[in-house]
Simulated scan of single mutants.
Amino acid sequence: MDTQRKTRLLIIGSGPAGYTAGVYGARAMLDPILVQGIEPGGQLTTTTEVENWPGDTEVQGPDLMVRMEAHAKAMGCEIVGDIITDLDLSSRPFIARGDSGTTYEADAVILATGARAKWLGLDSEEAFKGFGVSACATCDGFFYRGQEIVVIGGGNTAVEEALFLTNFASKVTLIHRRNELRAEKILQDRLLKHPKVETLWHHTLEEVVGEDNPKGVSAVRVKHVDTGEISEIPAKGVFIAIGHAPANELVKDTLELHHGGYVKVTPGSTETSIPGVFAAGDLTDHKYRQAVTSAGMGCMAALDAERFLAEQGEQTGKDETLPLGYGAPEGEGVAADEPQDA
């Protein structure tokens, strides 16, 4: 049965940006509804060890996202397991339609849909997806115990995937089109010293080779970028790790984009080209793309949304002399344009 929901703040997406926006939106008494989307928890649910989240020397990505979800719920954010399939931003209140049949009406929207893995676009890559070709080492690495595999890419994603896959594979070959990696130095150091890892510089993937009965990968054909020479490398698994693209499908025709599809926001804020619509996390961040920066932008988006609603005369019921998103003892309020750290 189709249902209709009304909320002052709708948050679309459930990574660090979405859940943090949920925490701050709930603390601002906006009674937010957060729709999780197709991948609850976002990219960190397919990551193992996270070593750069402040306060945790090491934490498993899925565990961190479970904690974030629980925190948002505890603050009063309603979390819904639905997928937004259509978003009408032509007028306020904004209208979002979910795959469940639910229609969400919102006075303000925070977009935190994140990013998704990029693919090379090869026919053979498409043919063997799920049968030896993957973009998620933590999802599929277990299936390649004792096998030789290859990883394509040269950034943080590729190096992290390659290092993780050494837990299962007999050999990991990292194939990169340049002669140096773009990953963080500490990751490069670990990779280049690992006895199971071999790097193949100046090469690109030309074709995934395999059989149809049973369906599976047996090798990859690679091309030297300078000489054009083709060579073949035995492999049972091929992991594509060339980065991510912003998940902008809902707004690519309505919001201003830049840098290849990232949602453009006003410098120093999360405001988009439509008043009342805010964007945070990897959907808008083409430069840093870190969990901690995404969380920070989620905080900013909730505070920006609260200010916007207040300016529209849609007050939260709080003393307007208090900083946005925070409470203070009586007599200790500060001007609304001087938010404090928490």
Rank of each mutant, 00 (worst) to 15 (best):
T204Y: 07
H71D: 03
D63I: 09
T20N: 00
I79W: 00
H176Q: 15
A106T: 13
P54A: 09
V133M: 03
D86Q: 13
A183E: 03
G276F: 12
N52T: 05
D226V: 11
P16M: 02
G281R: 01
K318T: 09
G296Y: 03
A135L: 04
L122R: 04
F94I: 10
G155A: 15
A305T: 08
D88N: 15
A112Y: 01
G114N: 02
W201S: 05
T45C: 02
P214S: 06
Y104W: 05
V292R: 01
F143D: 08
E39L: 14
A291N: 00
A135Y: 09
V277E: 06
P32N: 09
G25R: 00
V222Q: 01
E332P: 06
A335K: 13
K73E: 10
R8K: 15
A342L: 10
T3L: 10
C136P: 08
G101L: 09
D226F: 11
G25C: 02
L120T: 02
G296W: 01
N213Y: 11
V334F: 10
V265T: 13
D107F: 05
D88F: 13
Y288N: 04
G132W: 06
G121Y: 04
M75G: 05
A115I: 01
I83Q: 05
H71A: 04
G41L: 02
A158I: 08
G281L: 00
A127Q: 14
G13Q: 00
R289Q: 11
F308W: 11
G37Q: 04
L30S: 06
G22E: 04
L309P: 07
M65A: 01
P275I: 11
